[in-house]
Design a protein around this nucleic acid. Structure first.
Length: 157
DNA sequence: TAGGCCATCTGGTCCT
DNA sequence: AGGACCAGATGGCCTA
């Protein structure tokens, strides 16, 4: 299984993935070939959230004002005929909503980190972006599915 | 310097 | 009513 996985990542490396996997060309994939040490790592990421966060300076909170929704600014997402309910929120409520949104995005990123650890990658200089993580996961799942089907066809009943 | 990626804010709908 | 979810806007950081 290890050698098969290596082939998968190697194919990814060469960017000659079968068309059926529908993999788009991306920058991080190109980086595999330029990586100084083409070692395959499973579940090992040289990048951590702490490092990533340390690189960023937290954005100062935007000016907080009492929110009065402007229904002319943006239409409903795919629900143009829905009755629009006016909702007035206070500054405190807006701040609380911002905190909840940050927590939600944090948990989303944790899930992405977990997915990054599940997909086979080389030792990247850069970690996979979210979109590349999803794409590689799709490729990986497709590959493993094909592998399973081949094994079930070859094994005598 | 342009483009990619991401964090954050914001206001909309959906759902309980 | 309020939290969850979503998508657009914005701005910072990084890399080619």
């Amino acid at each position: 299984m290890d050698s098969t996985l290596f082939c998968l990542v190697k194919d990814f490396n060469l960017m000659d993935f079968p068309q059926k996997y529908n993999m788009g060309s991306k920058q991080q994939v190109d980086n595999i070939t330029s990586s100084p040490n083409n070692q395959m790592h499973l579940n090992v990421s040289p990048w951590s959230r702490e490092r990533d966060n340390a690189m960023r300076i937290s954005r100062p909170a935007a000016q907080l004002v009492t929110v009065t929704p402007n229904f002319n600014s943006r239409g409903a997402h795919g629900h143009p005929n829905k009755s629009k309910r006016r909702r007035i929120i206070t500054v405190v409520q807006r701040q609380a909503a911002n905190v909840r949104e940050r927590k939600r995005m944090f948990s989303l990123n944790e899930a992405f980190d977990e997915l990054r650890r599940k997909v086979p990658t080389f030792a990247y200089e850069k970690r996979l972006s979210r979109i590349d993580t999803l794409r590689l996961a799709i490729v990986y799942i497709s590959f493993m599915t094909d592998l399973l089907e081949q094994n079930s066809q070859n094994s005598p009943m």
